[in-house]
Amino acid sequence: MSRVVFPARVLPYLLLSPQIAITAVFFYWPASQALWQSVLREDPFGLKTTFVGLANFRSVLADPNYLQSARVTVVFSVATALLAMAAALWLASAAERVVRGRGLYRTLLIWPYAVAPAVAGMLWLFMFNPAMGTFAYMLRRAGYNWDPLLDPGQAMTMVVVAAAWKQISYNFLFFVAAMQSIPRSLIEAAAIDGAGSTKRFWTIVLPLIAPTTFFLLVVNTVYAFFDTFGIIHAVTGGGPARATETLVYKVYNDGFVHLSLGSSAAQSVILMAIVILLTAIQFRFVERRVHYG
């Protein structure tokens, strides 16, 4: 493609310099440090560093706590993504059906997006904590032994619900946009052929919004992996008994609280690999959507 461009030698570099400078100092420098530290071992006093090759990775991957944390992350991400997407899809298909008040419903449904994840977690904790939460009180009155601060399964349920709650608005907007782009003639033809609304949903709407669904699956997974640190940190602190310790929380905890440099760096590198994988999947999909969507 030949674009009309401005002739200039120095100006483009000047224009790029702020972004490149920030990127170099705060992205590339620390990332390369993480790569470098992941193959070093430092003694506890920080006096001597030795090159240990892949030993840090071996010990991280053999650590039962790390594997437990990986399992926790998978369970947490899958549960959060499924819950947030199912709820949003349900609401979006209802919003498609109403004629009046659609704008009002949208306004009322999108604002949790603006709530910080950590605050979202705390809101749910206010309602469900055993000391003063109204719902905890009701559950106990109903004879259910509820204490998310002690029971691992209940703690996980609470962080999943809080994380999914915050993400519903985002998914809702995308599902609504996807459903509006389905040609009305398709739906009408199916209706004339006698397909009821449930059948139309499963055989026409759902397949046609599949690209958006897949896109949201990737975005929600990335969200559950990385953006929910605040929820975990504010609500459970990884507990009880490591039941909600996700990979990102563990990197933070091992690096900052336990100060084990090599292990934390190796974990960072593994996380980078996961991000690169997820981004690659996302971009492949974007390519596809450009062609067929």
């Binding site: 972004q19 620390p30 990197v251």
Partner: peptide
């Protein structure tokens, strides 16, 4: 160079960024 920063969120480089 700009594009690749997508793959380096703060969460994956916590400790070295703190050191910088």
């Amino acid at each position: 160079l700009i594009f690749i920063t997508l793959m380096l969120p703060v969460e994956v480089r916590i400790l070295p960024t703190y050191k910088v």
